[in-house]
Design a binder for these strands. Structure first.
Lengths: 208, 208
DNA sequence: CCAAAAGATGAACCAATATTCACAATACGA
DNA sequence: TCGTATTGTGAATATTGGTTCATCTTTTGG
């Protein structure tokens, strides 16, 4: 984002910090917070344990920084996607496409993020929990607003917009998880998800 | 299930075992595997630490037993719900109602289960992972079969039945999670979920 | 080239806690 | 009632792994 005007020292500091975070992300995403030791992060990132503590004062802080920074990145990318011009349907499509792309590009983070948002956030203490949840709620609110205005225009059927947002999140996440488990089986496709969500599934036996 | 023909000793053994599991479930569901100590489980269940090890040879085994036994219980209840007479739509409705009821009746377990199935199962080692996943896949397969036969009868629109099953799971879980977070906000209602899932959401601007 | 500062190191320390086991309490059958 | 078997106990042990800090290395400015 805003690089420049950083001294060489500062850039190096940030690069080192990033390297640590990257190694930690890989490890945490594979085995979770408690099954990864600082010693291992140190070894894999080719720093000494003590050095890690120059960057992060506690193991928990390292983890926290990891999740929060990525989560903010995700959120801003998704919010940006909503700024696309077009009607509500178009915006939702763009948003979903962005979401799929983001997830596919950082599957390891997704696992961790999911564990945090959905898994009762056992792994770490409060604080993280709070911001992550708020983050999620805000995304939900944005989608909700989109539905609300779409309903006003009679573009969408008249359901509670909040529930629609929850449902769309749910359905798209389900597909993403499915893909996480069986990457080869189905290709992730925004159109398919949107069709199932928006089209009529129950025909009641009408001639198909 | 099949009680009787157990000696008093055996019944007592099982009762003790259950008491331990129950206490452990409460604790694990609140704070996760790693943030609960055997000593605490011992204290809260009013047994000595050593006694716990008479029932479960490792902490992990205790956790494992806990999840697996409840998961099997869930699964058999859901499978039973699918045996209800009626057409595919009716079966799905009954299944969803059973699912909602089950979840509502054991919110603490649900948190743990979700953490396991969705959260990359960091908490414990393999083995559990495998059975839980298979369990989930089988439920999915059952729903999928329902969709497949419903589609053949032209009761449902012609989508990939597997994807429909994933979508329905996703949408219903999303509502369950939403309810976990905001128990007061919306009342969990199978009809509402089914409407959003099965009815047409996108009208394309038709007169509403 | 040198001294002071900044950065990096990893052995050692220590707290937390899973697990063991020698012993005590209790139940049981004779 | 008594000896044996079963069950329960919890202090002691062992291990793991987070954190510290005295020391070494590198950089910097003169």
């Amino acid at each position: 984002m805003e690089d420049l005007k950083l001294s060489r020292k500062e850039r190096e500091y940030l690069r080192h910090r990033q390297e640590i975070l990257q190694v930690a992300l890989k490890l945490f995403s594979e085995r979770g917070f408690h099954n990864v030791s600082m010693h291992e992060i140190a070894q894999k990132s080719e720093f000494a344990v003590g050095t890690l503590y120059k960057f992060f004062s506690k193991k928990e802080d390292l983890y926290l920084a990891l999740i929060l920074e990525k989560a903010r990145e995700f959120r801003s990318a998704l919010t940006a996607a909503l700024q696309t011009p077009g009607d509500e349907m178009k915006k939702i499509r763009t948003w979903l496409e962005a979401k799929i792309r983001l997830f596919m590009d950082s599957l390891d983070f997704v696992r961790l993020y999911v564990a945090e948002t959905r898994g009762g956030s056992f792994n770490i203490k409060a604080g993280l929990d709070k911001e992550i949840k708020k983050n999620y709620e805000m995304t939900l609110k944005e989608i909700e607003a989109l539905f609300a205005s779409g309903i006003k225009k009679k573009l969408f059927a008249k359901f509670d917009p909040h529930l629609l947002a929850v449902a769309l999140e749910g359905i798209s996440n389900a597909f993403l998880f499915e893909h996480l488990e069986h990457p080869d089986k189905h290709w992730l496709d925004a159109n398919l998800i949107l069709e199932i969500f928006f089209q009529q599934v129950y025909t009641g036996g009408a001639h198909g």
